[in-house]
Design a protein around this nucleic acid. Structure first.
Lengths: 206, 206
DNA sequence: CCCCTAATGGGACTCTCGTTCCGTTAGGAT
DNA sequence: ATCCTAACGGAACGAGAGTCCCATTAGGGG
């Protein structure tokens, strides 16, 4: 008889357990926004969430695992996306959504913190990848449709186009002090569209 | 008489002080590669560098300040860049240089670590910005020359074009598990070039 | 409604990080 | 070559993060 040890919170996921998780994740968001991932302290979190310190350590064990769980939670709540029928408009809407998110003091700090957290813990990194995969998948259809309409070359990789919109905004946030404003967003969208039209994102094989 | 307290290492910067700095910075690189910024411990660093623990704490005080100093050191040693005369080739050379750097186990880990470090300490963030400013400035001339040759629209922002080459590579590294290979580099260069030709990086005014 | 036990919570303990104190070493100016 | 003191290094100290033990609470099946 191998004694299969069930992780805490898995046998009775409802009721109090669920309330504790929600309170801790909410507190984690606040703490990440205020002090970043480096300043994340599970003891402090317990106080914020009005939950026993032991509980937090037992349920999550490390700050990385906690952020991974937070990312799972974030991935579940998806944003409404526009669907205007015009590739240029869709890409611009996406760029502006990303830009507003990163420029927002709370959301921006939160995103920076989870990216930091993912650099060091493989589990957190995997959760972050899943989060972005979902985000990209939500917006890929507008590219696929543009290909079908003949606006973009056949074989264009929809994921690459969507990522090309976000990339300059993230890069600007991480490596420069220049503001993440609407012109920057519009430029990112226009650049991605131009490159896509030129066939820069066609998949390797014909 | 205001007692102006001089920071340690500023009055006699040569000799032993310089040797200690070099040894600690080298040890810091190793530690960042092995454990990332989160695992950086000044005490451990002192052992690696065969230097007194007190010295490290007194000279740098925090992991963030130490990485800031490391970035100053990194910014001073510039890489040779190619100058082929063709915009497409120059951008591809730049893209491949960035790609090789990020894909290299040591360099890639180091870059991730310093980006993480810059998210949380304003001084480190400033040092990171200066580092990237230098890197971008080194490559901007090839864009400026392409504008002068009439290959790109007048008013094209050289910095934005160079950043557009790096952006997708960094974004890929941070948010996906897909490999940072040569095709990815070539795609980044081609996309930046196409967008630049289409005028996506013209400066707002005139 | 009752019971079993999963899950929580408090408190004591340990160990590591960072600080402080003070004696020792070595730059570099004269 | 000598001296002054900037800078280094060892050791003891204190605070705080993470672990362990066990008593208490509440979920949800019967």
């Amino acid at each position: 008889m191998v004694d299969e040890p069930t992780p805490p919170g898995t046998v009775r996921p409802g009721g109090r357990t669920a309330r504790v998780r929600a309170a801790v994740l909410r507190a984690a968001e606040d703490a990440l926004v205020e002090h970043g991932f480096g300043g994340l302290d599970l003891g402090d979190l317990a106080q914020r969430a009005e939950v026993g310190r032991t509980t937090v350590y037992r349920r999550w064990g490390s700050t990385g695992a906690l952020v991974a769980d937070l990312l799972v939670d974030m991935a579940e709540q998806s944003l409404p996306r526009s669907r205007s029928g015009s590739l240029a408009e869709d890409l611009r809407a996406n760029a502006r959504l990303v830009q507003r998110t990163l420029a927002d003091p709370r959301q921006g700090a939160l995103f920076r913190a989870v990216i930091v957290a993912a650099n060091g813990d493989p589990g957190t990194a995997e959760a972050l990848r899943l989060f972005y995969r979902r985000r990209v998948e939500e917006w890929a259809p507008c590219v696929t449709e543009a290909v079908e309409r003949g606006e973009l070359p056949p074989g264009t990789d929809p994921f690459e186009v969507i990522r090309a919109v976000s990339a300059p905004l993230y890069y600007r946030m991480l490596t420069t002090a220049e503001p993440l404003d609407e012109p920057a967003a519009d430029r990112a969208a226009a650049a991605a569209e131009a490159a896509a039209r030129a066939g820069a994102y066609r998949r390797p094989e014909g």
